[in-house]
Simulated assay, not measured.
Amino acid sequence: MPNRLARAALRTACLAAGMAVAPQAGAQAPGTPDPGVRTLRPVTISAKANSDPVEKSYRKMIRGMDLFEREKSLAPNASLRFKLLPRRRETDMNAIAMEVIGTTVDFPVAIAPDQTFSLPRDTKAFAEDAQVIPNRKAQSMTWRTEIRTPGLPPGTRRLGDLRLECRVGMEAGLVSRSGGVVDRIAGAVFDTPAYCDKKVPLYLFFSERPLFSVTLTAGARREVLPLVMLYAAASDDPKLDKDLPDCDCEVLVDRTYFLPLGDRSWPDDTLVEFDYMEGG
């Protein structure tokens, strides 16, 4: 049973976090325009040079920002930023350039040294369903939200912040969907932000450093997360080497954890405490 649970959880996480899109039968030949797909105007060298961009919908990301404002009670003192994370060992996360590109609008987005960014609101980009495009190849990076309440003790996060991270991430479309077969379990991940209300949704969070353990603390109540909720639930997976390449946790698996987001016996002010591995 542990093996089966670990493999099911990892496969769900991998599908949810972004599998490579399978080539479709009957696909058009290269260079043939598809009448059903609008081509974005190539306005910069970086946009034209990247033929396989790891892009997201500007409109969906703005809707995620709107959800953050509506549900601010989960994290009343926090701010929202988006974060880029490496998916491959060879991915260069330094000096990433990012643009929002629509049919008639384009503008750059500044990336901070910690690979986080905020997205400016632009009515024309929203109307044109522009794309948010960094100059990196598809499958080289993954995306998450970062919602942090200031003033927390070092090595901790607040559960309400992370609940809202999941909900905004789902609404913003940051969890990529496979173009191939998605099983019924993984399919639930792609429904709505309501998926985050499940007792233990298989939504991958990433810590700052490799993890030894994660503990929830609310007043006198203290509980260490079971091992199956760490490392993408893959600690007992005999085929881990085959599963990881399909997961956006591939190079960060030692930093991943799930949380009981839908277990309301843990209040939003619950502290999530990280015990990191010494020396990584």
Rank of each mutant, 00 (worst) to 15 (best):
residue 110 A to I: 12
residue 166 C to G: 02
residue 28 Q to L: 15
residue 239 K to E: 14
residue 253 V to Q: 13
residue 214 V to I: 11
residue 82 F to Y: 07
residue 264 R to T: 15
residue 216 L to H: 06
residue 195 Y to D: 10
residue 235 S to L: 11
residue 127 A to S: 13
residue 105 V to I: 13
residue 96 I to M: 04
residue 49 A to R: 02
residue 273 E to I: 09
residue 69 E to N: 06
residue 220 A to R: 12
residue 88 R to M: 15
residue 180 G to L: 02
residue 85 L to V: 08
residue 69 E to Q: 11
residue 252 L to I: 05
residue 156 T to H: 02
residue 125 A to I: 10
residue 215 T to I: 04
residue 179 G to D: 10
residue 280 G to L: 13
residue 112 A to S: 12
residue 153 P to Y: 08
residue 196 C to G: 03
residue 96 I to S: 03
residue 216 L to Q: 09
residue 219 G to F: 09
residue 8 A to F: 10
residue 103 T to D: 14
residue 158 R to I: 05
residue 109 V to Q: 01
residue 148 R to G: 10
residue 108 P to N: 12
residue 230 L to R: 08
residue 136 R to E: 10
residue 21 V to M: 00
residue 120 P to Q: 11
residue 263 D to L: 03
residue 192 T to W: 09
residue 189 V to S: 03
residue 254 D to Y: 02
residue 38 R to V: 15
residue 174 L to P: 01
residue 125 A to D: 14
residue 26 G to R: 01
residue 45 I to H: 06
residue 57 S to C: 09
residue 221 R to F: 12
residue 132 V to Y: 11
residue 265 S to C: 12
residue 257 Y to T: 01
residue 168 V to N: 02
residue 130 A to L: 06
residue 209 R to D: 03
residue 173 G to W: 02
residue 238 P to Y: 08
residue 242 K to M: 08
residue 269 D to I: 06
residue 177 R to Q: 12
residue 3 N to F: 13
residue 186 A to G: 15
residue 188 A to D: 11
residue 44 T to Y: 02
residue 73 S to N: 12
residue 21 V to I: 03
residue 173 G to D: 02
residue 116 T to D: 07
residue 49 A to H: 07
residue 60 K to L: 07
residue 36 G to H: 14
residue 196 C to D: 02
residue 122 D to E: 11
residue 91 T to S: 15
residue 13 A to Q: 04
residue 263 D to W: 01
residue 38 R to S: 12
residue 25 A to W: 00
residue 111 I to K: 00
residue 18 G to E: 02
residue 191 D to A: 12
residue 266 W to A: 02
residue 164 L to G: 00
residue 25 A to N: 07
residue 63 R to G: 03
residue 128 E to H: 11
residue 5 L to C: 10
